[in-house]
Design a protein around this nucleic acid. Structure first.
Length: 579
RNA sequence: GCGCCUGUAGCUCAGCUGGAUAGAGCAACUGCCUUCUAAGCAGUGGGUCAGGAGUUCGAAUCUCUUCAGGCGCGCCA
């Protein structure tokens, strides 16, 4: 519909006297035509006259008058008028306007898709929580967000691959292993448990499962826990060291614990309707001591470019030349690689895999980390624009007006699984996505369960369910779905016009959401659209109209149902048919 | 101190690459169920878009600055 207008505008520009090619280009690039926000401005509108006026130093209203004359002569539009400071508003011919619902009904689930992405490949890495315990509600937001932008991008013509990076190589995993170890021998150790070990009940469960699986009483040397340092961090580190060196089952416990926790995470994500194409393990990057490992090779190539250098016994990366506050350590003076070194190798590997674009979804507390990872990408000779880091702010959960705490180590937390149990996957995803990701979110559990308009989730679902119910009744009366909307095209029934106009905006909303990586735009659109529907539903009786009118309305409402369903599916939410 | 984010109605927030009288929900007040789902609809009141300066036909939106709040600045991950 907009194309129809732009085509004529371009012809108009070419016919316009005294425009240099350069100016013409500039104007064509800058102006925009769009769907009006409101029917009393017609169907589509353009700001071309204002843009042209500033470029040509002419009065916008004069240009508008000329354009209006031109457009009228084409006879392709129902009505053309200039308005305000120089907008030109167009009312489409009836059949052009109504054609949107034919389009929706025909394309059905595919309506809203585009080839904007040109089949470029995008990799989205998200959640990637340390596998040291179950996912908590803080992780839920990144999960919902990463998954939703994955869906939105693939519907916009990108080839999307979703990946989870498993941090299975660091100190946190050692602490998990030591925690499980300590629970296994809690009785032998007379109730001893390290102060900063993971205290969640899942640790005890893993310990129990490990004992069951091994099916025999494992001996342990009690001196392992004697005379440990008092400081809680030193205590756990010393314990880890002793177990590693003196206890043969260390690796078994570690592998077992990791496996258990990871399976839990996978199960939780699955029930949260989040799927991954790949689970990438940090340990697969290999050991820094191994010349053939990915991590060693990545660091070596940085050393070759002289961006990485040795100082004070450690290997540093010059990240400050790319705007970081200070340089960062890659290899510690004792020869161990830092987390950063793994991450450098990981990002090199991602780029080597040939993606056109990488999107990292990170918690907002990692924003200080962006500069240094960009620096490493540049240092390796890649374009840092390939990487797009999307920050997700924490979500504060409120229950009965009180803030719900979350912390993995203390074991006192509200898990993602708890949340799903309490309000369901769909409502949870919906509220996580209801605000721009990089802003703080207050998530009110009571609201998510409320049965009033305040609960936007149900407000939207209710619109869908109402349409489903109407269609069901229609089918019972008339047998099959109507094939067109003759009463609407002929203008004998015009009460659906606002709905149709709103529906025509949908593809633009999806595109905007894809470009800006902002799923919340879809939520706000759906809310407004549901509002329009409920209003229509209240003012109009559908099934008691004449057969011709009813046919047209149902045809139109079926399109409305498709819009809501498609929008929700982009968010990973199933539309509800009966409430 | 440096960096990032935020400041829009009493509250929670929308507001597209600058565009036509700044929007919604909640809260307050008023109406609408013998008829397709009242988890609904219609209406009223409520704003120096934190303050100031600039850019321009036009600024909540862009630039600078002041104020206020949040977060991040380990040879942790």
């Amino acid at each position: 519909m907009i194309d129809l207008l732009n085509e004529e505008i371009n012809k108009f520009l070419l016919s316009y006297p005294n425009i240099a090619d350069e100016k013409l280009n500039e104007i064509q690039k800058k102006y925009s035509s769009s769907i009006t926000d409101n029917l009393d401005k017609g169907h589509v509108t353009t700001n071309i006259c204002m843009i042209a006026a500033s470029n040509l130093k002419q009065n916008p209203k004069d240009i508008a008058t000329a354009l209006v004359e031109w457009l009228k002569k084409t006879k392709k539009f129902e009505k053309v008028e200039s308005a305000g400071p120089g907008f030109v508003n167009i009312t489409l011919q009836r059949s052009d306007f109504v054609s949107i619902i034919n389009n929706i009904n025909q394309k059905s689930q595919k309506f809203g898709e585009s080839d904007y992405g040109n089949n470029k490949s995008v990799q989205i890495e998200f959640v990637s929580a340390n596998p040291t315990g179950p996912l908590h509600v803080g992780h839920g937001r990144g999960a919902a967000y990463g998954d939703a932008i994955g869906r939105i991008l693939s519907s916009s013509g990108y080839k999307v691959e979703k990946e989870y990076y498993i941090n299975d190589a660091g100190r946190q995993i050692d602490i998990l292993t030591a925690s499980v170890f300590a629970r296994i021998y809690e009785d032998d150790f007379n109730g001893f448990f390290p102060k900063s070990a993971y205290k969640g009940t899942y640790v005890s469960e893993i310990a129990l499962a490990f004992k069951d699986k091994n099916n025999y009483k494992l001996d342990v040397d009690k001196s392992l826990i004697e005379n440990l340092p008092g400081d809680e961090e030193k205590e756990i580190d010393e314990l880890i060291l002793r177990i590693k060196n003196n206890y043969e089952k260390w690796a078994d416990i570690k592998a077992f614990a990791l496996d258990e926790v990871l399976n839990g995470i996978k199960t939780d994500l699955k029930s949260f309707n989040v799927t991954y194409d790949k689970w990438y393990s940090e340990s697969s990057l290999g050991d820094i001591g191994d010349n053939e490992s990915k991590i060693k090779k990545a660091i070596d190539s940085l050393i070759k470019t002289k961006l990485a250098y040795k100082d004070n016994g450690a290997i540093w990366l010059d990240t400050s030349r790319s705007g970081d506050d200070k340089n960062r350590v890659l290899i510690r003076d004792d020869g161990r690689a830092t987390y950063f070194a793994s991450d450098v190798a990981y990002h090199k590997d991602k780029i080597d895999r040939g993606f056109d674009k990488l999107i990292n979804v990170w918690g907002a507390d990692h924003h200080g980390y962006i500069k240094r990872i960009e620096a490493s990408i540049e240092g390796l000779g890649f374009d840092k624009e390939k990487l797009d880091v999307q920050l997700v702010q924490f979500a504060n959960l409120f229950k009965d007006g009180k803030k719900v705490k979350m912390s993995t180590r203390s074991g006192d937390f509200y898990s993602l699984a708890d949340l799903i149990n309490e309000i369901g996957t769909d409502a949870a995803r919906f509220y996580y996505l209801s605000k721009q990701a990089d802003q703080h979110l207050d998530f009110d559990l009571n609201l998510a369960k409320a049965d009033s308009k305040e609960n936007i989730f149900y407000y939207i679902q209710y619109a869908h369910a109402r349409i489903c119910s109407l269609i069901e009744k229609y089918n019972k009366n008339y047998g099959s779905m109507p094939k067109d909307a003759t009463a609407i095209i002929s203008s004998s029934y015009i009460n659906c016009d606002k709905l149709i106009h709103e529906m025509s905006k949908y593809p633009h909303i999806v595109l905007r959401a894809a470009i800006a990586l902002q799923p919340h735009l879809i939520i706000y659109y759906l809310k407004d659209f549901a509002q329009s529907f409920h209003s229509f539903y209240n003012d109009n009786k559908v099934l008691t109209e004449s057969k011709e009118n009813t046919d047209s309305i149902v045809y139109c409402l079926n399109a409305a149902k498709i819009i809501i369903a498609n929008g929700l599916k982009l968010l990973g939410i199933e539309p509800i048919e009966k409430m």
